[in-house]
């Protein structure tokens, strides 16, 4: 068993608010440079750059977890983490069906889809900055139905965090963990596992916050076990 440092909440140049330098090889290079063992890609309401980062990571032996940061209709951000790209792409179909509006790049920023070598493939015109019409409960359910882990993002942040938007964790909401912001005091969140990731939109922010896991290897299955404290897998104290 090893201690692996993971930052599983990174944006790419696909997120309108992410800097254009957040391309697959630059993300992987920066993650390796600062010593991360696992990263995850969670763009807003889209997974179109996940496969590219996964392949760029594979070139450098850096495991990349497929993910998405979904905005529920209450404007709560929820991370979905998955074992393979196919699962997150299927969830993306549902998210897109429930996401209205068209992006105006001049107003909100460019949404660039790239390949694993950072070549620009296209711009996506969905309004990724918007909220879906899925309720918080439906969002968590959809993530689970697609085989993923549902984590309430930056739960302590005033905007787009579960507590800021809805005051308290709804009773019976089957979250797999909560994510807290960098340097936040670790609270007691209804006995849910607590992780911290950077939510990086800029290269310089990668790894600003991370979580150390005790795992055999940096895979989705191992991280899922750590969140459930199974088979000796665990989250180290933040």
């Amino acid at each position: 068993m090893r201690q692996l440092r993971a930052d599983l909440h990174l944006h790419t140049c696909l997120s309108p608010c992410g800097e254009l330098e957040m391309v697959p090889s630059a993300i992987v290079k920066e993650a390796k440079r600062i010593g991360l063992d696992v990263i995850g890609v969670c763009d807003h309401n889209s997974a179109e750059n996940v496969a590219a980062v996964v392949r760029a990571g594979a070139r450098e032996d850096l495991p990349v977890i497929a993910g998405m940061e979904i905005t529920s209709r209450e404007e709560v951000h929820v991370l979905g983490l998955f074992g393979d790209e196919g699962q997150v792409m299927r969830l993306q179909d549902l998210v897109y069906e429930n996401l209205a509006g068209e992006n105006d790049p001049e107003v909100f920023g460019h949404q660039v889809v790239v390949d694993e070598f950072d070549n620009v493939l296209r711009l996506t015109d969905k309004l990724l900055i918007g909220a879906t019409s899925l309720s918080l409960e439906e969002t968590v359910q959809a993530i689970h139905d697609s085989g993923g882990l549902a984590i309430a993002a930056h739960i302590d942040r005033e905007r787009f965090g579960l507590i800021g938007q809805l005051g308290l964790i709804p009773a019976g909401l089957p979250l797999d963990a909560v994510e807290v912001s960098p340097r936040s005091p670790v609270g007691d969140w209804d006995n849910l596992p607590v992780v911290s990731f950077s939510d990086a939109h800029f290269l310089d922010d990668i790894g600003k916050s991370s979580t150390c896991f005790v795992l055999e290897e940096g895979t989705f299955e191992e991280i899922a076990k750590a969140l459930r404290s199974e088979d000796g897998r665990a989250i180290m104290k933040l």
Partner: peptide, 10 residues
């Protein structure tokens, strides 16, 4: 304008 059931608890 929030219609989530949490409005009752809050």
């Amino acid at each position: 304008l929030q219609i989530h059931q949490n409005i009752v608890a809050v």
